[in-house]
Design a protein around this nucleic acid. Structure first.
Lengths: 204, 204
DNA sequence: AATAAATTTGACTCAAGAGTCAAATTTATG
DNA sequence: CATAAATTTGACTCTTGAGTCAAATTTATT
């Protein structure tokens, strides 16, 4: 009994500590991601990111190995979010319907959360870069497959499915360049508009 | 007579020299632009760009003031090209027709020439950044105006014209991320496909 | 060939920012 | 309070790449 209480206390402690550490680390990644988005990877210094969190640069390095790792995790976070969206089941009889629902979620996610699609993939080392591009490729292929499905069920117009996808993925990636959370357009509106435009663009 | 021949020789000479200088300088900008596109502004070093041209870094600096200026000129070059396209008169009775013709030219230009839309606008100093964003804004507004015109003449579906435009401008900017000149898709095909998708996306 | 201008270079300087580390400080627990 | 682990810090080091400059070299002209 005494033994177990000690154990549980110990476990709870280490668990809490690990949770604390993990969530602080997460905060670092998110803050860095926003800095990267606003100012670009190379223009955002680790010192600056630390300061935004009320920390010193040296303290940052308690949570992350190096800057590149942070960029890498930012990319992964975005692709994880997209994967989660892709994994969910969407209602709608046609593939186009599903694609639309998916697209809405993408836009809402990108306008709402701290997650953003970064473009600076060349600042990653060969290993991480390959990894990130593989993740991106996987997602793109999944969407392309959905488009092909739509071309079979007749909901999506014929034509190069890859081009269909690259076109509207561009809209997603371009969001970062102009979307301003404090602007008059909210994420829901943009999502609705973009979904409609995407659908019209490839629907048959 | 003697006088005039001397003068003309002198003028011709300086003219040639200036032309030489200008075209070499242009080559520097173009090469740098390609390097920036491939590797990102900060990852592409001046030494590397010089080497690609068979020069030394010091020689590069005979042609340009500094790296930022080069980035600035790359942006201007792209916007100049877009301005030229925007200035031309396009056939087609509806605004949508004109927009489509325009869009085709944009895509062809971006897939063909050394010109490319760069995204690293944050690496510019305040002055140049404002300038570049102003140029971009001007172009966007012109296109938005055309979209509004289309909404009046009934060729373009109603809805926020800015969003209509941001959507397909994303496709343009995303080109850099995936387009490979040595790939199986050529610029003309992409232009045709994208034009169709753009048109379908906002046509009424 | 002599000359003058244009072009190129090797060998620098300099600043910025990534990353380190031993020591100080804070936090949780008995 | 004493202690041990976790966290944070100031004060470094080190590398990279931008930018400079006086001198060398090339080019065009008479």
């Amino acid at each position: 009994m005494l033994h177990t209480t000690i154990m549980t206390a110990l476990l709870k402690d280490t668990f809490d500590r690990k949770k604390q550490f993990a969530s602080k680390r997460q905060a670092v990644i998110v803050e860095a991601g926003q800095a990267f988005r606003r100012r670009g990877y190379h223009n955002a210094s680790m010192t600056e990111i630390a300061a935004n969190l009320g920390l010193t640069k040296a303290a940052l390095y308690y949570y992350v190995r190096n800057k590149e790792e942070v960029l890498y995790e930012c990319h992964l976070m975005a692709y994880d979010a997209m994967d989660r969206i892709l994994k969910a089941k969407y209602n709608g009889v046609t593939a186009l319907d599903k694609l639309e629902a998916l697209f809405v979620e993408f836009v809402k996610m990108l306008t709402a959360s701290g997650v953003s699609l970064l473009t600076d993939v060349n600042s990653l080392g060969a290993e991480n870069k390959a990894d990130v591009l593989a993740r991106r490729g996987k997602i793109e292929r999944k969407i392309i497959r959905l488009v092909r499905e739509g071309q079979k069920d007749g909901s999506i117009r014929d034509g190069d499915a890859r081009l269909h996808v690259f076109f509207f993925m561009g809209a997603l990636n371009w969001l970062n360049a102009w979307y301003d959370a404090s602007g008059r357009l909210n994420g829901e509106d943009i999502a609705a508009h973009f979904a409609l435009q995407m659908r019209a663009g490839i629907g048959s």
